[in-house]
């Protein structure tokens, strides 16, 4: 997906479509690390990964609400929506790729890059330099000079917020002419990482963006956000630093209780596994293909929920737990006699 500065409603739609794609792109990597933890172990890591993954689901839903509010139409079934891992994130950071790997220091290292803080308010939006080349995601448009590549997800959302403010000044409240019945409201989304915000105007759109940015990377790098919730970046950092943050701590020096991490209590799943890694005709291969089919079906269900049938979110919930079960079955399959490497879901959709 090519991003250019937002000057019109179509540009705003493209950014919000990228936002939905971006929020989704973080979920398979987080879930892969989460499900690779052996049952009954690593409760601290389990909690951190689960909380973050669930909040990304909230962010995806909030982005869909904003897109619906400005007359767009979220579609999680377009070809290329799910990246082929390892992949660059769709907001244009090109100094790292995200992949599907077991819970490990390498995985957490990538997660820290995904959630890295933007500078505090007032500073300019930093972008990442890179030569023009075909993008990793989307329809393969060739980049040009004005293409945007954000250093952090927070800055990407700040660009969206700037665009919303500019376009609202230009179009007035008419900018938010989307059908309010397409909004996901608390009636349909609950206990999922925070409060869902229905978006009907600039104020609610900005509240949704603020929630996304602060849950992810903190408020201008602050450890705790305006709800006293610890940002994703610092949640992950606790696992490598081995201590919890508490109020008053300086970034990088948590002083709370020790965090117990057992990096060895993990299924040794293959990094960025592909269906083609599994023997043709094997039950393992059929199961990996079935997982991908079910995942595609799940994204179609979510699309329906975002396109006017919010009640379908409840069906999607059941699918999530079934997918978790299938992912667990795959991760328990040794790929060699000694069990040195295990299978994993491939998320090839």
């Amino acid at each position: 997906m090519s991003l250019h500065p937002i000057t019109d409603v179509a540009g705003l739609h493209r950014h919000l479509e990228a936002a939905i794609q971006l929020e989704h792109a973080t979920i398979p990597p987080y879930l892969t690390a989460l499900y690779s933890i052996r049952p009954g172990t690593n409760s601290a890591a389990l909690q951190v990964l689960r909380a973050v993954a669930v909040e990304e689901m909230l962010h995806l839903t909030l982005s869909a609400n904003i897109l619906n509010a400005v007359g767009g139409s979220p579609d999680l079934t377009v070809p290329g929506f799910v990246p082929a891992f390892p992949a660059y994130l769709p907001d244009g950071e090109t100094d790292f790729e995200v992949g599907l790997r077991r819970f490990s220091t390498e995985a957490i290292d990538t997660f820290l890059k995904i959630e890295r803080p933007a500078p505090a308010d007032g500073e300019s939006i930093r972008t990442v330099e890179r030569p023009p080349r075909p993008t990793m995601l989307g329809a393969g448009k060739v980049a040009d000079d004005s293409e945007e590549h954000f250093y952090s997800i927070g800055e990407f959302y700040r660009a969206i917020e700037d665009g919303l403010i500019r376009l609202e000044a230009e179009h007035g409240p008419e900018l938010f002419a989307g059908d309010p019945r397409r909004q996901i409201t608390p009636e349909f989304y609950y206990s999922g990482g925070g409060e869902i915000i229905p978006v009907t105007d600039l104020t609610s759109a900005r509240a949704a963006i603020r929630l996304i940015a602060e849950q992810g990377e903190g408020d201008g790098g602050a450890i705790f956000d305006y709800e006293d919730e610890i940002a994703h970046y610092y949640r992950f950092q606790q696992l490598v630093l081995g201590r919890y943050y508490q109020a008053g701590d300086v970034a990088g020096s948590p002083s709370g209780l020790p965090v117990d991490v057992d990096w060895g209590a993990v299924y040794p799943i293959k990094t960025n596994a592909r269906v083609s890694d599994y023997p043709e005709g094997s039950e393992l291969r059929r199961a990996a293909e079935a997982f991908n089919r079910d995942y595609a079906g799940f994204l179609a269900l979510l699309t329906g929920a975002f396109q006017g049938e919010p009640a379908r979110l409840n069906d999607a919930m059941g699918d999530m737990f079934r997918l978790k079960d299938l992912a667990g079955q795959l991760m328990r399959q040794p790929l060699d006699a000694a069990g040195m490497e295990h299978a994993a879901p491939t998320f090839e959709v």
Binding site: P39, S282, E283, L284, A287, G328, Q329, L330, R332, Q333, P334
Partner: peptide
């Protein structure tokens, strides 16, 4: 049950 299904139980 197949070995795959047995392994799948963990």
């Amino acid at each position: 049950f197949s070995v795959f299904r047995l392994e799948g139980t963990g």
